[in-house]
């Protein structure tokens, strides 16, 4: 049952990425290209996605657990640490360079061609080495 709903959620996510145009790297780079031909589409996607999501967060306040029994995620931490900032800056550079982030890279896998396989392989490699980078970062900056 969990898998069925996870599949459904993934289906909505994949369909949404597809029809919104977010698997087109030119639209993502167009959003980031403030000094060129700026494309506002991404803002509509982000705004549109936050509407059902905000309602869902409100519903979680009225329930003790998810429909399938799991506890809801805990209240988010307010800790702004170097990992969050450095990680997000790194992610942003990669996102701008290729116009791809993790979700759309999976959604476009069936039609993105060889270039996308290269990107996804590199992304998976990056995710595999991330724990080592994290350890190094904590060693350099022990103050956290």
């Amino acid at each position: 049952m969990r898998n069925l709903f996870a599949f459904a959620a993934g289906g909505f996510f994949g369909a949404g990425l597809f029809i919104s145009g977010m698997t087109d790297t030119t639209k993502v780079q167009g959003w980031l290209d403030v000094f060129g031909a700026w494309d506002p589409t991404l803002a509509f996607v982000m705004g549109g996605a936050m509407i059902p999501m905000a309602i869902a967060w409100l519903i979680t306040r009225r329930r003790t657990s998810a429909v399938l029994g799991t506890a809801f995620p805990p209240t988010p931490s307010r800790k702004i640490d170097r990992k969050l900032v450095i990680g997000s800056l790194m992610f942003g550079v990669g996102w701008g360079l290729a116009g791809l982030c993790p979700g759309p890279s999976i959604a476009a896998l069936s039609y993105g061609g060889v270039g996308l396989y290269v990107f996804v392989a590199a992304m998976i490699t990056g995710m595999a080495i991330a724990p080592f980078v994290r350890t190094r970062l904590e060693k350099i900056v022990p103050a956290e």
Binding site: G92, L97, A122, G126, A128, A130
Partner: peptide
């Protein structure tokens, strides 16, 4: 593509 993938992979996991 390789550089972008590595940055996205490491960056998203750190963050």
């Amino acid at each position: 593509l390789v550089a972008a993938g590595l940055f996205v992979g490491v960056g998203t996991r750190l963050a």
